[in-house]
Design a protein around this nucleic acid. Structure first.
Lengths: 186, 186
DNA sequence: CAATGATTGACAGTCACTGACACTTCCGGG
DNA sequence: CCCGGAAGTGTCAGTGACTGTCAATCATTG
């Protein structure tokens, strides 16, 4: 059985426990027992308890980065970012993934510890996207570019925050990104 | 001796150790020993090891919130936010606080764990500022407002990032906030 | 002085996480 | 067929953050 497969078996079992008892209240021993392995082996598949939850985010992040890299270099950065967010919008459109993501989000929001590492991942992702944008337009102001990526994520975050109904999310994101759209930037 | 005074004694000793040996490499026992108290008492003054470092940020955050609340209600939110950032700019102007803040920032950046809780605090602060703005102009779009606060913090973060020389910071912030300034918002 | 409430230290316990080591399984080469 | 290492695993012991508990101390107030 492949590493990836074992990881997702662990993740599934863990998420079920987290939903039942909460993140902090679930011990690594319990997760390991649920999939029939030792605690030590759990840590061979995930570097920390946090990672079990944040793993799916990681892959979504890679997706975003790939989308952004695929955008034409001449396009306004703001528009490229909006298009890079399409996978998120799509996931929101599918009831199954949306329900799953909402569950994950609830787990994250209920645990300050998890929320912290979640934000850390987002920060890292923003840095990656900034670098990607910086590479394609070298004459741009790095500070402004960085702020722009942060602003775009702020829009995404704000639009997703109320966990609004699925019909609301995409328009909300577009409206917010239109309101915060930088005027002059190259 | 007041609680506050004890906390700052602990914080001073801890920061010295953190600068010397790094955050992760310094144990709570060592900090407690340095100020001559038991580990148990340390945790009576700070809820976690992280808090020792993030405590000063907490007070800066309160300052920001107060400044924002003091701005006239008719002012454009973006300008109010810029003015609320003045304390940060001021701290950056004073060589002593700047050196201290830079040391703190270095400690934070070197420890993923700390960086995570730092971002969590920032998130909390943004939520507070959003609520303050929302209270003063009830007709505004909450989602857009939230994104705007996030965008302003992204500017602040981006401008502070390169740990540039003191002369650079304020202009960099102004330039970035001008570039990302929302056009239409009330 | 005595009662009382807050502060503290000492101790034990939980839990995330790490390192070391032994063991199994599998697989290609002799 | 046996031997070799490589990869995955369990076990055990240890560290360090954090918590609960209890008894002692200290300051305050009546």
């Amino acid at each position: 059985m492949s590493r990836r497969a074992v990881q997702s078996r662990i993740a599934r079992a863990a998420e079920e426990l987290f939903v039942d008892k909460g993140f902090e209240e679930t011990t690594v021993d319990e997760i390991a027992a649920a999939v029939g392995m030792s605690q030590r082996s759990f840590f061979r598949y995930f570097a920390s308890k946090d990672e079990v939850v944040l793993d799916s985010l990681e892959r979504l992040g890679e997706d975003l980065a790939a989308r952004l890299a695929a955008r034409p270099a001449g396009e306004h950065e703001w528009d490229s970012l909006r298009r890079a967010f399409d996978p998120v919008v799509e996931r929101f459109g599918d009831p199954v993934s949306r329900e799953h993501d909402a569950a994950i989000q609830r787990i994250i929001d209920r645990s300050p510890r998890l929320l912290a590492s979640y934000l850390c991942r987002l920060e890292l992702l923003q840095r990656m996207l900034t670098d990607a944008l910086l590479a394609r337009s070298e004459d741009a102001d790095p500070v402004v570019l960085r702020a722009m990526v942060g602003g775009a994520f702020a829009c995404l975050h704000a639009a997703a925050f109320p966990a609004c109904d699925p019909e609301e999310f995409a328009p909300s994101l577009d409206r917010t990104m239109a309101a915060l759209r930088p005027v002059g930037a190259s």
